[in-house]
């Protein structure tokens, strides 16, 4: 019997007590810590964690002395689950497309394992840029299409909420360029994704079942499984910077 995940309320699980694949993400806090170290935020920095889910990152950030961390999520259920006992985290309900904060407020924005779940990634980035200070940094972690063979897979994975938004590295780079951001770092952490997937396979039984849990339409069929043969997923950490002065992008002859 399929029901909503008790933790995040958004994705499906096959048993009531189960947590969906999104509540424990690849690498846990390992990549978060690395990203934080690479960014070098000032001591009193304001940081936003977009799509904070069950609050692992906000918790981590809130422990840093002087740092002001704010967690935002669309799901009330997730926020309720994220709040610690006694309550000490700053949490806010909101959508990444319309962040209820004034422009130029944050030194940094974390968006972990969530960009591929949005349908309008460019708008998300533009909105995040709005609330960033000039020189502010975006930390993005996500799955990406590490490799892709041919075109047959596109139709089939569009069925999946998680995979439909997955992009190749080139596509992500184009997106970043279109938004006017500057890339400071790009690291591949596919090993962590694999480790996470190993755990999921043992938990759920097979890779196809893992992907089916990520699928909105519960695609269980052969075609779906076959299409997965045509792609290899990877996991990346990237850090981008909002330029100090806005430059208009170059035009081309088109």
């Amino acid at each position: 019997m399929i029901s909503d995940c008790a933790s995040c309320g958004l994705f499906s699980v096959t048993q009531d007590s189960e947590e969906c694949v999104h509540t424990n993400r690849p690498g846990g806090l390992i990549v978060t810590e690395r990203a934080f170290a690479l960014c070098g935020f000032p001591a009193q920095a304001h940081i936003l964690d977009v799509a904070c889910g069950t609050g692992a990152t906000v918790n981590y950030l809130a422990d840093k002395p002087g740092l002001k961390a704010l967690g935002m999520d669309r799901s009330g259920k997730a926020l309720a689950g994220a709040q610690s006992e006694p309550a000490r985290l700053n949490l806010l309900r909101g959508d990444v497309l319309r962040i209820p904060i004034a422009p130029g407020y944050f030194d940094g924005v974390f968006m972990e394992c969530a960009l591929s779940l949005t349908f309008e990634p460019l708008h998300c980035l533009v909105e995040i840029m709005r609330v960033l200070k000039p020189g502010g940094k975006i930390v993005l972690t996500d799955i990406y299409l590490r490799e892709v063979i041919g075109d047959n897979f596109k139709q089939v994975i569009s069925v999946s909420t998680c995979l439909a938004g997955a992009m190749t590295q080139e596509e992500v780079e184009n997106l970043i360029a279109a938004a006017g951001l500057r890339t400071l770092a790009w690291e591949d952490h596919t090993a962590l994704l694999k480790q996470w997937m190993v755990g999921q396979i043992f938990r759920l039984g097979s890779i196809t079942k893992v992907f089916c849990q990520l699928s909105a339409e519960k695609a269980q069929n052969e075609e779906y499984a076959q299409a997965l043969n045509h792609i290899r997923l990877g996991y990346y950490l990237a850090i981008f910077e909002k330029p100090l002065a806005l430059e208009t992008p170059e035009v081309n002859d088109g």
Partner: peptide, 13 residues
């Protein structure tokens, strides 16, 4: 033949 095989394939890429 099930989970282990899937994991082996995944890790071998």
């Amino acid at each position: 033949l099930g989970k282990m095989l899937e994991v082996e394939r995944l890790l071998e890429d």
